[in-house]
Nucleic acid binder design. Sequence first.
DNA 1: CTGAAAGCGCTTACAG
DNA 2: CTGAAAGCGCTTACAG
Lengths: 340, 340
Amino acid sequence: MKLTITEIAKLAGVSKSTVSKIINNYDDIGAETRGKVLKIMEEYGYRPTYSAQSLAKKVSNVIGVIYAGKINSDLNHPFFIEVLNAFKKVIGVEGFDLLFFSNERFNPNGEDYLARCRHYNVDGCLIIAGGEIEPSIKKLDESDIPCIGVDLELTGEHSAYIMTDNEQISTLVVDYLYLEGHREVAFIGGLPSSPISEMRADAFERGMTACGLTIRQEWMKHGDFFEQSGYERMTELLEEKDIPKAIFAVSDLMALGAIKAIRDHGYNINDFAIVGCDDILAARYSDPPLTTVKQDKEKIGHMAAMMLKDMIKDHGKPGAVKVAPELVIRSSSRIKKINS
Amino acid sequence: MKLTITEIAKLAGVSKSTVSKIINNYDDIGAETRGKVLKIMEEYGYRPTYSAQSLAKKVSNVIGVIYAGKINSDLNHPFFIEVLNAFKKVIGVEGFDLLFFSNERFNPNGEDYLARCRHYNVDGCLIIAGGEIEPSIKKLDESDIPCIGVDLELTGEHSAYIMTDNEQISTLVVDYLYLEGHREVAFIGGLPSSPISEMRADAFERGMTACGLTIRQEWMKHGDFFEQSGYERMTELLEEKDIPKAIFAVSDLMALGAIKAIRDHGYNINDFAIVGCDDILAARYSDPPLTTVKQDKEKIGHMAAMMLKDMIKDHGKPGAVKVAPELVIRSSSRIKKINS
DNA sequence: CTGAAAGCGCTTACAG
DNA sequence: CTGAAAGCGCTTACAG
């Protein structure tokens, strides 16, 4: 059924060395021989076996994909999947396939990613941050395997990283709200353990200060990026003596939760300015449509692929790249004076 | 840096055969020897190299994932990704990793999936349908590699498939609309080349007939599953002499497009009943929230994994499985008499 | 321009 | 209970 190089060689009446050289584009093979062998390979649909090739060559043409963070995490993450999609488009052209490490088998010592990379002999790794980062990622980062981090500051000899300029996200939002006339701005962040969320929180505070606005600690909240937590934090804000009139939530889902909380507690949504972050599909269709910050996932994915490719092919080592975010203004942030 | 079995054997003072047997859980190794070797392996973080193991054993512990259909398709497909996620959760526990074949390199003869599966020696394949199916999938289906199709009727000796009961989708919707008092129902399908869409169209017609309703050919439309096509088809419907009052679109995006068209053309959305299909996240947040049909993606993914696992482990061959859909009623399908 | 031979890191009868 | 040897399918100096 499955042909080997030996059989192809026999069929072509040459040695397997010759066949191998043709497969690997050596340039010292006679045109005639090459043509003959190529035809046979085509005819029988021959493809060298990966494991044999990888074992002999020490190259795999496979990129490991790791979603760093809590065990059993979801592929089903809008940012993750869009970045990955863009990444795949570029890296796929180079002939790399993608290997997803399953982390469903509970491992008390933490998943040893380095060992798995060696096990598969991957040429490089894409590591996307999600939640807390386990120590095993650090080990991989420090190894000789090229790694590209997304939203994750990799510092190893053979690593680089790329992320949205998180400072700018907060700056964009604060400046915009300030220009719209808002002075009472609350912040709903993600988990305190998330570096991304902390960068945004810090930049939010700096931006507020720069605009001469006061930061109220009781208006600085932490959620977990999901809707329910946005609902709960907003509910808390509504119970404060002073209620903020503008809210920046660092995820769209939390912003959507906040909108729901405002309505459920009998307030008029038109009296509040809500800004989310991510620009998920639902943000376009929500009621009201949600103002948000869009990350250039396409660019992040494409660049990550280029950078990783360069490291694998040894075209030097790229450094850290930050990608500019974009504010998408919809009606949730415009206070409408309908009944006044 | 990277240890081999030979070195582990040396360190433990045994032969590599013995180490190999311990790795593979042979039961004829002395407890003492086993313990000693295990400790060394643990200490050095040894993991056998995949390619060597796969080459010698002819087993890979890797599942190939194929999104059948047009070249360069997106990972970024809500149904696909949720099914895959559920699939991964179950198959991951068995220790399988997932390999995504990139299909970005243009191949005039069509991607030869079978050759790639052999190249990587995958233990089995998950094939998810999207758009037209290329002939290369058929070859894979007929091979000895276990395949599980999602939304794709695989018929090979070593294949099985699973999908939502598409007939039931239409039946649920038609019956519901009928009970709500609707008699003028239009249908916006997907691409005519999509078997899934055709199943729904056929069942829609049967359901209408069963309810004693007349099917008007000018109300049977085809879109391409995306928003814009829903907008366009709805616009056409609004230009008919008789305008249907209820619309079943076979994707949520098209339903959302239809809602936009209705508003843009100056009609009152409350006079129409719109039903989508998929239950994407945006359906919950849209204005009005969208009535839709939900596929049990979790169950489909989980079952696909179990079925594939059974075929790989040779626990018999499962057949074709259909999963029941569920109608999710929101306000887009309830005609509100506000101004009358 | 072509081929014989050693080697990649593992597994598996087989012998003891 | 343990190990020597052949083999999995390929690649790559090296010799001619």
